[in-house]
Design a protein around this nucleic acid. Structure first.
Lengths: 216, 216
DNA sequence: GTTTTCATGTAACCCGTTACATGATTCA
DNA sequence: TGAATCATGTAACGGGTTACATGAAAAC
């Protein structure tokens, strides 16, 4: 309901659930989960950790590292989920709504599918797919409306953008088919991913869902 | 030098240079140029227009529209570039620097390549390419370092992200080859785009630049 | 005649970055 | 011993969004 980001907190909780970590390390891992590969700043991370501690979802323990000789003074703080935190994370992962379909939110949620039940996974994937096809419609529309008036570079940018989204949809189709397969085969909740791993440039996933024509 | 966004202003100036417009229409066009297809809010747009007027780069004229009967009271404000604005836009378009290689900035700059000279176009495309290959390196590295410890969904997200960037690089390669061709053929500055328009799934652009191996 | 779309704006707020400050540890 | 990296934090700022306010024109 508020803002709509809430991307950082789930990411942190999710990673800490996999294994306890200190801030500095967390930051590096975060970049991989956060979709885009920009480096998150400490100016974001540490205050967030602080607030998570205050809300009692994580706790930090001063882990005095024994470097190579004796114990050092400057300790690093290893964070881990509290019981409350684990509970909260499960709630977050089980929920899904409009915000969940958006780019960054989706990436984070997807990254932690391993901790999510099959129903939710499918719900998120399909919501995301709908979201993207809506976007396709919007693009195609204004595309068709303005294509004569646009110079060719702008047009090329548009074309490329459109293609990217189309590819994204095909990727989702593969994942959805996969989830459906799992769901039919297994009682749900097994957490087995078995995602498509087509190494590069395989265009035969979901052959005729996004029709290439009607572009004029 | 400041912030690093400066994505909105150039986009507005560029669009207004193509043709004068009022805010509401501008906003729709903006979404196509701004790379991602999120709708820019009026809360961003109008204050920005205001500040551009204050700096004398654009000017707004109350265009009283004759709707269908008589003249209406509520006029819409049509903005156009001033002489200063045109000059400033040319400066902006001729410049290039680290910020230019970033995602959104690049998109905007690319969209207005029609108004940019060939040297600059090539400089930006190559800068962007370098930026992306750097990113590829970063991803591949942390990818290799953590792949065993990651669950398969996170891994798939990574794989997919990597693939996207690789594709982006191939797209750039096509554009660069194209620009080089133009540059050799024509004295530069002709403004002729002739971009690659391979409809979909053409993988033979720049065959062996991003080597698929050494992924372990 | 009422709803939808067009059209312009403002104020509060959110989420993140940059720049700064500090100090320990490892490596050359 | 000095530089690079690890490690933790704070304060100021920036660029965007949401929510609000207003009203005319077009469509139904």
């Amino acid at each position: 309901m508020r803002g709509r980001s809430d991307v950082l907190e789930p990411a942190i909780l999710g990673l800490l659930h996999e294994s306890p970590m200190h801030g500095y390390e967390l930051r590096k891992r975060l970049n991989l989960v956060l979709g885009s590969f920009r480096a998150l700043s400490y100016g974001s991370l540490y205050p967030c950790l602080k607030s998570l501690v205050e809300r009692n979802w994580i706790q930090g323990t001063e882990s005095v590292v024994t470097p190579h000789t004796v114990a050092s003074k400057r300790a690093r703080i290893v964070y881990q989920l509290t019981a409350d935190g684990k509970e909260h994370l499960q709630e977050v992962l089980a929920s899904s709504g409009p915000a969940t379909w958006e780019d960054e939110n989706f990436d984070v949620r997807f990254a932690f599918f391993g901790q999510t039940d099959a129903e939710t996974r499918l719900r998120i994937l399909e919501g995301r797919r709908t979201r993207l096809t809506e976007r396709l419609e919007t693009i195609r529309l204004s595309f068709a409306r303005t294509r004569e008036r646009m110079d060719e570079y702008t047009l090329e940018l548009q074309r490329h953008g459109l293609e990217q989204v189309e590819r994204e949809v095909r990727w989702l189709d593969g994942l959805i088919d996969n989830e459906r397969g799992i769901r039919r085969t297994r009682p749900a909740g097994t957490g087995r991913p078995a995602v498509a791993d087509t190494p590069a440039g395989d265009d035969d996933v979901a052959p005729a869902r996004t029709t290439e024509k009607e572009r004029g």
